[in-house]
Design a protein around this nucleic acid. Structure first.
Length: 592
RNA sequence: GGUUCCAUAGCUCAGCUGGAUAGAGCAACGGUUUUCUAAACCGUGGGUCGCAGGUUCGAGUCCUGCUGGGACUACCA
């Protein structure tokens, strides 16, 4: 790493010039701002007390020292307290020849094969997926690829919430008003069909609730007392009692939903190593609750309910088991954590779950720590912001959602229309066209959702379509297609060259410097748990490639060494774009 | 009420552990194609970084207060 090398030289400079011992780790080297000549900058302001010289003098002396001692720089420039260093051109060329061409360029082994389990998606089975779920799925998928590229051994899982009152609502409405409708009979995708009956239930329930309120009942009371809600609860009780007919309907309707989800997952390009079902895990937590009682970290109230006191940790008391002995959400999660650890002895367990559950995960981890679970420390809530519409958060219950399947279809369609309009479908079979449109449409959608810092909420305006130009997925895909086109046209040309027989222009050096950053970006993405870091990088890289492409001729360059250099540069940029795209789940076309 | 997150151009977002004149994209306007893919490239206009203090050589970044907004704070999941 050139930065580290420079730091060592600078630390040595302090020792020799000023008799001051400064660890090279504490020295900050940053990229030189574009407005100035130079590649890296050392800021001397913090060290003036030890050098007892003016900023200019200090910078000048250190710069001269670096040249004298043979640091890998060819020149330097001092502006106020800024020492701008120009790295030797050969350095960049050697980097291109020796490192950038390696297939594993960008990846590292810092994870040391530590085991990470990533849970993501985790849908309810009473309604189809919406845009918020897409963000979750893409983040989960991407962070898995990023962790793998950093040398972690990663397994993915999906905890499906297949039981509970919400599923019973769909079941009830279907039983009462469905007339035996099935996905086959109606031609409706399974998850949408079940979602349809969820909406039927909610509509009916809302009417009943309004009637109760009109007759003088409080809103809270009315919410629990509608005839529909009571019947749904009856159904839940029957389910928990194992009533055969109820279980049968439950299985059938969940089956429809899984078919539907499966199709959506396939379109999104996500997959899972393992599925967990809450119907299997919801009872497991009870054992942990008993364990906590035995250890005296939980306590029982007079009505038999079990609680944990987290007031010392700045939180409240938290219910772990209802008075009637049934489990609540957190109980299940305790059990699931234990189960997961048993299946895959992880060092870290990542939960890709929205930030509305920040409190929940804080509690979960605290409780597991109180139980002295060895895996408690490794729990990490990858908390991401909600996707909001211009008028606020999406609400399934009110039908205020952007449906996942609709949006995907729309993106692919727009990609098709755009591609056709640009006349880029010549000679493609229908199948190749469909694949390309899907690749581009999904590229646009994925990039749109992943480029934003996961921690932040983001806005989606359905009235404005997602762009295909500028800072977008298709821009990067297009850049890749251009590169591939050049390489196809230049196939067979010589690609080895002597560093001494070429010159490196500003655009070329800029591109090389960008390439050089890539391994740092991959590491940062894992450290920050943010695919957005990769997005921003790829956009920068593609932009500097396009500038280079615009400024220089590649195949028509007459100096064979220079041409070879540019071809290798193109190839390396193409590799990095593909590698980076794979971290995001975005495929790169050969032509578009 | 308590906990917590957020506020940067008309819109959507970058801005790494504090560093030089705060950057992109979209939208607006203007230019570039007999030359490797114009989903591209170049240029113009656009800012009290929510407000007020503080810390220091230096603050969009750190601290305090205020304003505005979101989430959580259920014997829902």
């Amino acid at each position: 790493m050139i930065q580290n090398e420079l730091k060592k030289y600078i630390a040595q400079a302090f020792l020799d010039l000023y008799k001051a011992e400064i660890s090279s780790d504490s020295i900050a080297i940053e990229k030189t701002s574009d407005d100035y000549e130079g590649d890296y900058t050392f800021v001397v302001f913090p060290y003036l007390k030890t050098t007892r010289k003016s900023p200019e003098q200090t910078a000048q002396q250190i710069g001269e020292y670096l040249i004298q001692q043979g640091a890998p720089i060819q020149s330097f420039e001092v502006l106020k307290g800024f020492l701008n260093l120009v790295v030797k051109a050969e350095f960049w060329i050697q980097f291109l020849q020796n490192e950038a061409q390696l297939p594993e360029f960008g990846s590292n082994q810092s994870g040391n094969q530590q085991k990470v389990l990533v849970e993501y998606s985790s849908p309810n089975t009473n309604k189809p997926l919406h845009l918020g779920h897409i963000r979750n799925n893409l983040l989960g998928y991407s962070i898995i690829q990023i962790l793998k590229a950093n040398g972690f051994e990663v397994k993915s899982c999906n905890l499906i919430n297949d039981r509970g009152i919400h599923i019973c609502k769909s079941m009830l409405a279907w039983l009462e008003q469905g007339n035996g409708e099935t996905p086959e009979s109606s031609g409706i995708k399974g998850d949408h069909l079940v979602g349809k009956y969820y909406v039927v239930f909610e509509k009916q329930n809302k009417l009943e609730k309004e009637q109760l309120i009109a007759s003088g009942m409080s809103e809270e009371e009315a919410g629990k007392s509608t005839p529909s809600m009571k019947r749904a609860q009856d159904l839940l009780r029957k389910w928990e009692a194992g009533d055969e007919e109820t279980i049968q309907i439950w299985k059938t309707m969940n089956g429809w939903v899984y078919d539907g989800f499966g199709q959506t997952y396939t379109k999104l390009g996500v997959n899972f190593d393992q599925f967990y079902y809450e119907s299997n895990t919801y009872l497991l937590g009870k054992e942990l609750v008993q364990e906590g009682l035995d250890k005296g970290v939980f306590f029982k109230k007079a009505d038999g309910s079990v609680w944990v006191d987290l007031t010392e940790d700045g939180l409240d008391q938290k219910l772990l088991l209802r008075g009637d002995g049934t489990s609540v959400y957190i109980t299940q999660d305790l059990g699931t954590a234990e189960l997961k650890f048993g299946d895959f002895a992880y060092n870290r367990s990542v939960y890709v779950v929205g930030n509305e559950q920040d409190y929940h995960f804080k509690v979960l981890q605290l409780i597991l720590k109180k139980l002295n679970k060895p895996y408690a420390e490794g729990i990490y809530h990858m908390s991401y912001g909600m996707v909001e519409l211009p008028d606020g958060k999406m609400k399934s219950r009110e039908g205020k959602v952007v449906d996942a399947d609709d949006l995907i279809q729309e993106m692919v369609q727009t990609a098709g229309e755009t591609t056709e309009a640009l006349g880029k479908t010549e000679g493609l079979t229908e199948e190749a066209k469909a694949d390309l449109f899907h690749l581009i449409g999904m590229g646009a959608l994925k990039y749109f959702l992943l480029k934003v810092d996961p921690r932040k909420k983001m806005l989606f305006n359905p009235a404005e379509s997602i762009d295909f130009q500028g800072n977008t997925g298709p821009f990067i895909q297009y850049t890749h297609a251009r590169i591939r086109s050049v390489l196809r046209n230049g196939a067979g040309l010589e690609t080895s060259f002597e560093a001494s027989s070429i010159s490196v222009s500003k655009a070329e050096k800029n591109l090389l410097k960008n390439l050089y950053q890539y391994p740092l970006v991959v590491a940062e993405a894992a450290r920050e748990m943010s695919p957005g870091v990769v997005c921003n990088y790829l956009f920068d890289l593609a932009k500097s490639y396009n500038q280079f492409y615009h400024d220089h001729s590649i195949l028509k360059e007459e100096n064979p060494a220079q041409r070879a250099f540019r071809l290798v540069l193109c190839d390396s940029v193409g590799r990095v774009i593909r590698h980076g795209g794979s971290l995001l789940g975005i495929g790169m076309p050969e032509k578009m």
